[in-house]
Design a protein around this nucleic acid. Structure first.
Length: 697
RNA sequence: GCCACCGUAGCUCAGUGGUAGAGCACACCCUUGGUAAGGGUGAGGUCACGGGUUCAAGUCCCGUCGGUGGCUCCA
């Protein structure tokens, strides 16, 4: 006689074993009809799941129309849609071997191994969808049945798919004492798949779906293993939700930094220069320079010293640091002097030998620097250091080059040449805590100014069972505690991830998500015991003996390329005035007002504002439109009335109307103040308190 | 790097093996205007590159380069 507790706390008793379906039925026919699954004691299950003991239960329903379905509901629908898609594809292309088909963020996919003569392309999507529609319209029940491990393995092995055998074996290895199948219909008659479930009660409950994309994947995520085809789709309770989802995807694509970067003339990547090498156009350079100035102001306040170092360094330097040859694959090849090359060529040296000799140091060369730390380390080592000098904090916007795999390159977010807001701190072990804290404070100040709230913090700690780490365990414990404490004090949510530390020390990473849903690591703070050792760094302690300093690497924003790529998407190109390439544009109503317009422009420039004048022979409508598309924060319309009164008629980005006229001096002062305080929309709020305060966000 | 798809004017994109297209942007002319495209005229092309098939290739085939998405990688 199980007692079932509902989410509202009420309890019901049932005769003998029951199911979520029966529970829903007993509550009401409406609920029974819209139920698609349940959580029993927190576990997601089928409606037919057998409940034999007291349990708490929450019925999962598919909400229609405007209200959004819960994550659980979408998970069930998408997982079930993956099955339907797999069945459809198997019908269309017999011989396809299914591998694995889970729901994911925003949809689902199914990995499959295609016979050699089968290729699925986006042209086939409508056929797949038609087939799926027919399966859905048959409204066949998802029917689960279980076999014990022996029987189950016998069945899977009999069917002979190595992928399914592997899946079954993994389930058993993970501790399952039985294997389960889901048939869409009657087991033995209809299509079925090895699957742990759960699913919606019947195919008809998949309200709306769409095949989105096809891509390749590797079996077990191993690039040396079988290549699989991955078909992506998405599914919702009904068409309305699907339509809204597709619309959101379209809107998100408009924020894509590559699209906006082109529209606003911020940057370009030119094949004539090279893959993954960003050319900052004048407008983008302004954004970058402003941001660098901003960051520099704060690092100076934190006691950093600015340094500059060259773009290349001797190979020996990187042999010492260990970067060469360990990361050779992702470095541009070494630069070897011409004389040396000719000598080697004359000796008949092969490429393989050359590589060997470069590695051993018999042949010397230069490396396009993959990291700034060795250069900074040599600056530290250039003087004798006392404990009184520590921490030494060196900062540089240092450009590094990494030969990333071509398939990885993506706009400004993954490039081959990039400038890190790099810094290296050399300190005593007991200074680590305060220094890590300082790094996080900097991040916090800058993210707050930029209005960035949607970032995650990851604290990478060592795996206690692994021996791959350098440095003594006591120091590690100290450094890890410092990182965790700093993250806690920063007051943001963070995840501790054991095993994610670098081999040389724990780290804190900042992760953001781009317009199309991909995660990117921006900044990082890393404690390092390794490099001071490798470079034999020291300082003289109070005891007059030499001691080893600890290094902290920190690039709180990662690279200027990635950070600004992300920032473009964050603002959808509508930068706050202080960052905006063009802060204010003057629009004369007609040529007759051109003289006054020039006075206005000159006045703005006197206040160091980035102002431009639209001199085109166009109507005002056209000038407003052009400026609005460039997302310029402030537009000043000037006509005869304004000339007479020494006023400007203001329009602000995001507010699609004339806000009214204010005195030229008044406007200029207010905007100059907004810019110098790096605030967002203060001039607008000051001059036009009635205008929507958040409209420029 | 792997797989799939894509590459046509500065940009966004049409284009059925048979004369290379549109809109925007650009130049010039008309227009002198008060808040998201005033009108006209014109210029602009090695259809990514290299081979091949064909009487004929932007279109079909092969290769190379580049881009996009995913996978893998990321000190």
């Amino acid at each position: 006689m199980p007692t079932i507790t509902l989410p509202d706390g009420s309890a019901r008793e049932y005769e003998g074993p029951t199911t979520p379906a029966q529970v829903a039925e007993s509550i009401g026919p409406g609920l029974a009809q819209s139920a698609i699954g349940a959580r029993v004691d927190g576990e997601l299950v089928d409606l037919q799941h057998s409940i034999t003991e007291d349990a708490s239960i929450a019925i999962i329903t598919a909400r229609k129309g405007e209200s959004e379905s819960s994550d659980d509901a979408l998970w069930l629908i998408r997982h079930s849609a993956a099955h339907v898609m797999a069945e459809a594809i198997e019908r269309l292309w017999p011989g396809v071997q299914l591998v694995y088909g889970p729901p994911v963020d925003g949809g689902f996919y199914y990995d499959m191994h295609l016979p050699d003569d089968v290729k699925i392309s986006s042209d086939d999507f409508s056929r797949i969808e038609e087939e799926m529609k027919s399966i859905i319209s048959e409204n066949r029940p998802f029917t689960r049945y279980n076999l014990d491990v022996t029987e189950g393995m016998k069945k899977v092995e009999g069917e002979g798919s190595k992928y399914k055998i592997d899946n079954a074996q993994r389930a058993i290895d993970a501790g399952s004492d039985e294997l389960s199948w889901y048939a869409t219909g009657t087991p033995g008659e209809n299509w079925e798949d090895l699957c742990r479930g759960p699913h919606v009660p019947a195919t008809g409950r998949i309200g709306a779906f769409k095949i989105m994309n096809i891509a390749a994947s590797y079996w077990h995520g191993d690039s040396k293993s079988d290549q699989l085809a991955r078909v992506y789709g998405t599914a919702f309770t009904d068409r309305k939700q699907l339509k809204r989802h597709l619309h959101q995807l379209e809107e998100a694509r408009k924020r894509d930094h590559r699209v906006i970067g082109k529209q606003l003339g911020l940057f370009t990547i030119d094949d004539a220069v090279g893959q993954g090498l960003v050319l900052w156009k004048p407008a983008g350079s302004i954004v970058r320079q402003e941001l660098q100035d901003f960051i520099s102001t704060h690092t100076r306040r934190q006691g950093y010293d600015q340094v500059f170092t060259p773009h290349i360094g001797r190979l020996e330097l990187y042999r010492t640091s260990g970067h060469f040859p360990y990361y050779q694959d992702s470095q541009y090849p070494p630069i070897i002097e011409r004389d040396q090359l000719s000598t080697l060529a004359a000796e008949g040296c092969t490429c393989g030998e050359l590589a060997n000799r470069l590695e051993t140091g018999e042949v010397e060369g230069y490396l396009l620097k993959p990291m700034n730390c060795p250069h900074h380390i040599r600056i530290y080592a250039s003087e004798q250091r006392s404990y009184r000098d520590l921490p030494v904090r060196l900062a540089e916007f240092g450009t590094v080059y990494r030969h990333e795999q071509s398939g990885e390159l993506s706009g400004m977010l993954r490039v081959r040449g990039f400038t890190q807001d790099d810094g290296h701190l050399f300190c005593t072990p007991d200074q680590i805590g305060q220094e890590v804290m300082g790094c996080l404070e900097l991040v916090k100040v800058i993210f707050e100014t930029l209005g960035m709230q949607n970032y995650r913090v990851r604290v990478g700690l060592r795996d206690p069972d692994s021996a791959k780490y350098v440095g003594d365990p006591e120091n590690w414990a100290l450094a890890e505690a410092a990182c965790v404490e700093a993250a806690e004090k920063m007051g943001v949510d963070f995840e501790s991830e054991p095993g994610e530390a670098a081999f040389y020390g724990p780290k804190i990473d900042f992760v953001v998500r781009d317009a199309i849903g991909r995660d990117w690591q921006l900044g990082t703070v890393q404690v390092d015991y390794n490099l001071p050792e490798r470079f034999d760094l020291s300082y003289i302690g109070a005891d007059n003996a030499a001691h080893r300093p600890v290094m902290i690497h920190r690039a709180p924003f990662g690279s200027m390329e990635r950070f600004i790529g992300f920032l473009i998407e964050h603002y959808a190109g509508a930068f706050p005035a202080w960052l905006s390439p063009e802060q204010v544009r003057v629009l004369p109503v007609s040529e007759k007002s051109m003289d006054y317009a020039r006075t206005v422009e000159a006045k703005l420039r006197e206040h160091d504002l980035r102002a431009k004048l639209d001199t085109r022979d166009e109507r005002l409508n056209s000038k407003v439109r052009a400026a609005a598309e460039l997302k310029i924060p402030y537009l000043l319309v000037v006509g005869p009335r304004d000339a007479e009164n020494q006023t400007v008629s203001v329009r602000a980005h995001g507010i699609e109307k004339d806000l009214g006229a204010v005195g030229l001096d008044e406007f200029t002062t207010a905007l100059a103040e907004e810019v110098s305080s790096r605030s967002h929309g203060t001039a607008l709020r000051q001059l036009f308190p009635d205008a929507a305060p958040d409209a420029t966000e």
